[in-house]
């Protein structure tokens, strides 16, 4: 859903699983925890704290 990135919890090179919290996103004045979609290693982070994001936008690329 559209909203604002309020925290980025991973760095490039981090290993993540489906249980890893990667971003905190805020919408409707509520924090929403975003988990990794699958296992992998973070290869690129496309957003920073304060960015406005849209639904379906790529946020983090896993390699």
């Amino acid at each position: 859903m559209p909203g604002k990135i309020v925290n980025v919890l991973v760095q490039v090179g981090d290993k993540v699983t489906r249980e890893t919290e990667v971003l905190i996103h805020e919408a409707m004045k509520m924090e929403n925890t975003i988990f990794a979609d699958c296992e992998g290693i973070v290869s690129d982070i496309k957003v920073k704290v304060g960015d406005s994001v849209e639904a379906s936008q790529s946020l983090i690329i896993l390699g």
């Binding site: 859903m1 919408a27 409707m28 004045k29 509520m30 929403n32 925890t33």
Partner: peptide
Amino acid sequence: QPSRFAGA
């Protein structure tokens, strides 16, 4: 459900 789409 606040943990999904803020419960909206």
